[in-house]
């Protein structure tokens, strides 16, 4: 666009246009985010103060849903399982890094190996869940047979209240490790070769090289891997649903699945109670998410 003399004499107009343009471009996205994310968040909070089956009129019950939650064994089981998920899911980050370091070499056919390692992330979580269910299945499952052969005892992992959550997490780690691996593989591409070279000249190798030279350069990748793993652990739902439906007798439930059971499953339709669970889950997620956002903001400030 060529500037006409007039527009030069109207710099204020141009400046306001410059200020407006980004918002115009953001508007469609913001509108969607508002309608489909922000508004439902507050709606859920609002619904959590009601007793409502989704059909009949709502009844205001104040914080009764939350009071019931405090005294609900199933809620604590779900919360405990969520903590276990969170803790064990973190293993995906170092495991992904190890595999990425291992695969980050130039060998003939390395792309095939990389794709094979990445494969579990590509297939659907439902399929992962089914594969592991069969792996654990009594009477014909591979792991079941293996344990029977090794120890002589029969262990049906998905029917044991103490083992079932670990069994599901193991299934979840499989694709999650692949995800972290791919994040680190792309990160490793960006590691500056001259720094490696310089470090090598200074005599660094092995763990020292990894810890002082490679890892600091992988910080962005580590950050993203942590974020997706934390969120992945907290919203774990599909595997629980596919592998056990929260069973046996509710011992593998997590908060998101309990929320679904209460609010939306065949035996539930307690919208208010489900919403209260959702609010608690949201609060837990907020702790992590605000932490991440704060860190990102601080980094950007530092970079400026």
């Amino acid at each position: 666009m060529t500037l006409s003399p007039n527009s030069i004499t109207a710099p204020r107009k141009r400046r306001s246009r410059q200020a407006l343009a980004p918002w115009l471009f953001l508007a469609p996205g913001l509108a969607m985010f508002l309608v489909y994310v922000i508004v439902p968040v507050f709606q859920s909070m609002w619904v959590s103060f009601f007793d409502w089956d989704g059909l009949s009129p709502k009844t205001w019950v104040g914080i009764a849903n939350y009071i019931e939650l405090i005294d609900d064994e199933a809620f604590y089981t779900s919360l405990k399982n969520n903590v276990i998920w969170l803790a064990l899911y973190m293993l995906a980050v170092p495991a992904g890094l190890m595999i990425a370091l291992f695969l980050n070499q130039t060998v003939r056919g390395i792309r095939i190996y990389k794709s094979l390692f990445f494969f579990p992330f590509v297939i659907s979580q439902v399929v992962v869940g089914l594969i592991f269910s069969w792996f654990y299945a009594p009477d014909f499952g591979l792991l079941y047979k293996l344990i029977e052969w090794l120890t002589g005892s029969q262990v049906a992992i998905l029917a044991d209240e103490h083992l079932v959550t670990y069994g599901i997490i193991a299934a979840g780690l499989w694709p999650q490790i692949a995800y972290c691996m791919i994040l680190y593989l792309t990160g490793l591409n960006a590691v500056a070769p001259d720094q490696i070279e310089a470090a090598r000249l200074d005599g660094a190798k092995g763990w020292k090289m990894l810890w002082y030279v490679v890892l600091p350069q992988l910080r962005p990748a580590t950050f993203i891997a942590l974020v997706v793993t934390v969120i992945g652990a907290l919203r774990s739902f599909d595997l629980v649903s596919i592998m056990t439906s929260g069973g046996p007798y509710g011992s593998s439930r997590v908060l998101s699945y309990y929320m679904y059971e209460q609010a939306l499953s065949e035996y539930g339709y307690r919208m208010g109670y489900g919403a209260a669970i959702a609010v608690v889950l949201f609060a837990i997620m907020m702790i992590f998410i605000s932490g991440f956002i704060w860190k990102m903001w601080r980094d950007e400030q530092g970079a400026r």
Binding site: A159, E161, G247, P248, Y249, G250, E261, S265, E266, Y267, G268, Y269, R270
Partner: peptide
């Protein structure tokens, strides 16, 4: 009722284990 059924059947399963 649906909610009683869910809690009840979970209880039955737990009892059997």
């Amino acid at each position: 009722s649906a909610e009683m059924a869910k809690v009840g059947m979970e209880g039955f399963q737990e009892f059997m284990v």
